[in-house]
Design a protein around this nucleic acid. Structure first.
Lengths: 151, 151
DNA sequence: AATGAAACTACTGCCGG
DNA sequence: CCGGCAGTAGTTTCATT
């Protein structure tokens, strides 16, 4: 179905670090012409491996100095609980990511705030009032490193 | 220092969803000319708010059907422990993200594997043998939603 | 900040292996 | 089926007003 050779993986690795690199530049590095490189990129999009290109933002530079990961366990386990919770949590502006997970917690949230005082406000007024919310565990982000991954 | 008006935030919001959108297209939506829009984008880069553009990859389409979040507590708390651990964990190919956090855990790892069997291999042979590793908690990713955030 | 020109990049057919 | 060549369309980038 989808067979990726070493060249495809090299393209994904390079573009993962910097998605602005032109196909011609990339092709020189791989011994390919610009159209050949670009066709491979289009093919990676078509098979769904490459779903888009997004910005890499610096939350601190934007005035959001605090990033917190929240592990959330639901109190009520009904079928409607999940959808109610997801709809409500997605409406909170400070929530960047909502991950539905299996394990000790039901959801993992990535939340940003201007500072710890601001985070406490979000926690008390937005998070703790979510429908069906149970035990919560918090981890404050100190530093983060993104790696190339297994490509 | 960094004063972002509503237009800057609108640009970041739009590019966060799709970083390939041309400045001219974006300017029409905001009532700005193409160069004006482009200057704002350059300024956002210069003040460090916009640090780059990265790919949005679909791990499942690349043959990695399992994504697991690992909360890790270190056993030894010495100053060298952190660096040793970080260096070793960053060398594991299956590790996508390493987050140093404050809370119940010391590190949060995002790990991908081909399937659960493959994940068990990574866990036993790579993760559990990390220097200074202590208690570990795992959460398997079911689904994930990225939101615009507080911009 | 807009206009227009220049350079560059993305994309499309066509042909050869 | 995949890659190179050549040409077109579209975007970025910069100079001028």
């Amino acid at each position: 179905m989808n067979e990726l050779d070493a060249t495809d993986r090299a393209i994904l690795r390079a573009l993962s670090r910097d998605a602005t690199r032109p196909a011609a530049d990339l092709g020189r590095e791989l011994g390919l012409s610009q159209p050949a490189t670009w066709r491979r990129i289009r093919r990676l999009r078509e098979i769904g491996a490459l779903t888009g290109r997004r910005l890499d933002l610096d939350a601190a530079a934007l005035g959001f100095g605090v990033t917190v990961f929240l592990g959330v366990k639901l109190a009520s386990r009904g079928r409607a609980s999940l959808e109610d919770f997801e709809r409500a949590v997605c409406a909170i502006r400070e929530v960047q990511t909502v991950e539905h997970v299996l394990g000790l917690y039901d959801y993992r949230l990535r939340i940003v705030a201007r500072d710890l005082e601001d985070f406490e406000r979000v926690l008390r007024r937005r998070i703790m009032t979510l429908p069906g919310i149970g035990p919560v565990e918090a981890n404050v982000l100190l530093s983060e490193e993104r790696l190339p991954g297994p490509l």
